[in-house]
Write a protein that binds this DNA or RNA. Sequence first.
RNA 1: GGACCUGUGGUGCAGCUCGGAGUGCACGCCGCCCUGUCAAGGCGGAGGUCGCGGGUUCAAAUCCCGUCAGGUCCGCCA
Length: 578
Amino acid sequence: MNDVDSTSLRDLLVARVAERELGSRVSVCGWVAKRREHGEHLAFLDLRDRSGIVQAVVPGSLDVRSEYVVRVTGTISARPEGTVNERLVTGRVELTDCEVEVLSVAEAPPFQLDERVEVDEAVRLKYRYLDLRRDSMQQNLRLRARVNAALRAAMDAQDFCEVETPLLWAPTPEGAREFVVPSRLHAGEFYVLPQSPQIAKQLLMVGGFDRYYQIARCLRDEDLRADRQFEFTQLDIEASFVTQDDIMGFVSRAVLDAAEVATGVRPERIDTMTWAEALDLYGTDKPDLRFGMVLQDLSAAFAATEVKAFAAPVVKAIRVPEGASFTRSRLDALTDQAKALGAKGLAWFRVGEDGLDSPLARFLTESESAAISRVDGAVAGDLVLVVADEHALACRVLGALRLALGAPPVSEPPYRYLWVTEFPMFEGLDDDGNPIAAHHPFTMPHPDDLALMESDPLRVRSQAYDLVLNGWELGSGSVRIHRADIQAQVFRSLGISDEEAESRFGFLMGAFKYGAPPHAGFAFGVDRLVAIFAGAETIREVIAFPKTQSGADPMTGAPKEIGARQLRDLHLRPAVKG
RNA sequence: GGACCUGUGGUGCAGCUCGGAGUGCACGCCGCCCUGUCAAGGCGGAGGUCGCGGGUUCAAAUCCCGUCAGGUCCGCCA
């Protein structure tokens, strides 16, 4: 017995029973998946462990119920002629002359564990420990473990050093809302849980760890979504004496290795696109490249239009294949959706054999009509949707409609990886007229655009880059500012005073005075990557104990009130619920 | 903060438009029968505040209002 899974109680996992010599007497342990009794002389017991199911034959009645924990000792035997079950890995054999030892009795579970029917997620989460016994959760969490191992191996192979950074950190009021931890020893003062190890890893660069990584838990007190939980896991990396291309190379290696481990196929490439191209062609900074419906620019054709609805800086369109059959109410719903996204309206054109069908069709000139009919190679039976507005708005609205009308489920192959580069440094102006940082304020501007920092900040590109998979943002990174003069210039652009910068980031700026190497980094979400590999539509399917959308845990009841004693220790007074 | 969807024995559904007795289906559960089943089979049985509260009505699972829970999305996530 040299099976790695053998223990004092069991010899092997059930899935390996078929690999052993017939006639061997072995013990296996697990849960009763099913009992089938045939009178007082014969009963079958399907025994489940994490590897699968094996059938045990008992020559008599059997006093066990579903989910009892048992140890079965039996003889590995070939199944009789005609009783082979090809649907089981172990279906050619069975355990005979079994002794069944009950290790633990069990009540009937609140839902069936055989996955023949979908079970409401709230019920699954309340009894997550039972849900975890189900095959899909076993597969998902084991897939996740393999991905983690592949990521570690890839970073180790690239000579990165894993360093753990603190969970109790100082408040840095910027970006995502932080989870706050009251201090017992310092009345009225607080730690926060890190939204990411961002500052810590930059300090590690100053500290001479020129290649750092960590599979790091990050916490953000923001509303939850299918792809967002309060706490999530990132592969966090940072390196010194590197460029953007170096970092993209390190990350690509890790992601491709993980993809190969998870799917069995190494992706051929990761495409690259600038942020401006992404917005222009897909109306988003995280394009889903698995399908077409690319945004077309009709501005030139409508430059001199008489139609008021199209008198705008930009006219853009998408083609919806076979969309001409959409009902009027569906088109109205699309228009409402466009308006909800900020558009003044949505123009639709059914493409027919004899021209366009639309309330607006009769107002168009022949050349305008022709331009719409040609969008994206439109043919009769298609629908063309047109938005005329400011460039960014027109792009974003059509990008959202494109996804709503064409996007497959995120985990549906193929897997299309994409680097998006040259993000803008700033996104719009705040109420005081100061530019708003698109990333954190330590992001290095594009060297070609440094001169624009004062004169035209909104045109400044940054050295920031995102990794996208099937329309989900996997992660982002940037080259960091390591020079005090550039950092001061960025803070000035953002309207952050010297005093403010000192109080928020003083320890980082202080560290940079003592010799900061040029450095850059990246972080990407392991939950999202594994969810896509697992074929799941939400990251909850690859997290052992996730929260609901309202941030609650139906199993533990968290969040909960705490006792008067604990409150006193923490110098807190409970809020009155209202 | 907002929009939309869902809530019916333990589980998954149907019933809701168009109000008329908790009606139905599948799985599970309990009991009995069954010596080759594996989505076992046969017979019998238990199990419900139709999420909760209010309103309309002679009458509400069904219509209306509110509320709670779950989900998807917008805002938010530097």
